[in-house]
Design a binder for these strands. Sequence first.
DNA 1: TTACAATATGTCAATATTGACATATATTTA
DNA 2: TAAATATATGTCAATATTGACATATTGTAA
Lengths: 102, 102
Amino acid sequence: MKQAKKKSLEEKGWRVGDVQEFLKLSREEAAYIEIKLTLSKNLQDYRKSKHLTQGDLARRIKSSQSRVAKMESGDPSVSIDLLVRSLFALGASKKILAGMLE
Amino acid sequence: MKQAKKKSLEEKGWRVGDVQEFLKLSREEAAYIEIKLTLSKNLQDYRKSKHLTQGDLARRIKSSQSRVAKMESGDPSVSIDLLVRSLFALGASKKILAGMLE
DNA sequence: TTACAATATGTCAATATTGACATATATTTA
DNA sequence: TAAATATATGTCAATATTGACATATTGTAA
């Protein structure tokens, strides 16, 4: 955007640059959420493939059934760290993790 | 381990099973730490390849230079979440992330 | 149906992670 | 060299994540 136009808009009260910033942020936010959902889904598949209940997995990682449920439902209160640690507890490796993201 | 042997050891005060549990935990812990270090190193390379200072990156992710330094040094106070969000802020994609873990 | 097992949802105190700050230590440039 | 710039390290109050709990809902076998 030309400086003159930018200045003109700013004089009218617009915060120029915010749209681009918004788009960039939402792109990054979307990528972040997508990763969490990918890990969530894979965790559930992985657990089921081992014929474990949420309670079983909870015991293994010293957590609770309700937290495992939140992990698998993509609850925003769950960190990537916890998802990754849970996958490792089920026997996944770094390579397997990489495969989940492809 | 045979049950008789196990019982005998337990009578002597040993917590049998702890060794296996310790090994399993350390295996998972090692994998978790390895992932963080991998992301740390890649973050630094990625940042440098874009000719940005730690301060520049800090501004982009609304954090501080000191936290970026901790991210790149593999400081245990840094979460995978923060590392991943930072990589996305530098333009990385899910696929690129996967490549880092291979 | 009715038990029973598994999963989902909401809450919260305890714990972990965070950005910010001060300041030390490189590293680069004039 | 010295000054400027970049990075490292320690601390801490604010915020986010956590396990635990209660309880609701869903699935499932008798």
